[in-house]
Amino acid sequence: MELSENKILNCSGGFHRVARIFKMKKTTISILIFFILFIISCEKNDDPGSDGSELYKISGTVSEDGNYAIDLYALTDTLFEGYNRMFISLKNNDSGNPVSEAGIKLKPMMNMVGMKHAAPCEDPGETADEDGYFEGAVVFIMPSNPDEGWELGMDLSISGTETSAKIEIPGVVQPEEPVLVKFISAIDQKKYFVSCVQPANPEVGINDCEFTIHYKESMMSFPAAKDLGMEIEPEMPSMEHGSPNNVNPVHVSGGHYEGKLNFTMTGWWRVHMTFKKGDVLLSDDTYMDITF
């Protein structure tokens, strides 16, 4: 009951708002104004990254030849199992100038107790963006633990010289709600990795959705799967209903599939996924949960 009372105060309509404002004492109003200004000023202080998002520094190192300082940034303060956008900045140690042209080949590696394996990744373009970052991506296919950790190797090619670097990844966590699912193809027993890129901030209404699909060719090779058919079907498991007018993701480029995902209300949604190669079913028992 108390909860509802609060709601009444907070959500009542325009008339109430006006009435309430007039009823408020001057001090209350000044506190309110101060609070509003505070919120506005906070919003303005946000430091925008390459696309307006804030970047967090993950780790840094120096290239093998000692000429370059390499820093790794991401959109979250901790990397997670799934598709992680990687922002790399390169700086010339002698001149102190940032490098804006470079060939970077990413080589993520998991050092397990008994073996090693790589992970799907996307190499950055040769030119840094206007903030000086080379943007690539890595799909971490398992979380790290105290005994088994990820490192990000890089082959660098800067103004004609070749060098390499290795960045220790401090930790890769398992998100509370997985954004990576794996399935074994029913036809050739290949292992596929499906990561959710979008929606990163799901909301009620139409959400652009983007998934990446990679498969395991060998322990060291995880190419993008570019010819799959993908179907999505959101459902609210506890309500036993779905949502209408979703658009199945289709391949755009480099293993990225884009579509539309509709949520009619907030809460726990489960997106059921079906994968096909041509008309042949690869898997239809995979799902990803999205709760907001």
Binding site: C11, G13, G14, F15, V204, M236, P237, S238, M239, T264, M265, T266, G267, W268, T291, F292
Partner: peptide, 24 residues
């Protein structure tokens, strides 16, 4: 006329404890 109504559902499912409320 101003009108507004909303619905918040609080689930307590045995198989999914701690499910966040649903709002529309």
């Amino acid at each position: 006329n101003f009108s507004r109504a909303d619905m918040t559902m609080y689930m307590n499912s045995v198989s999914n404890p701690g499910e966040p409320p649903m709002y529309a």
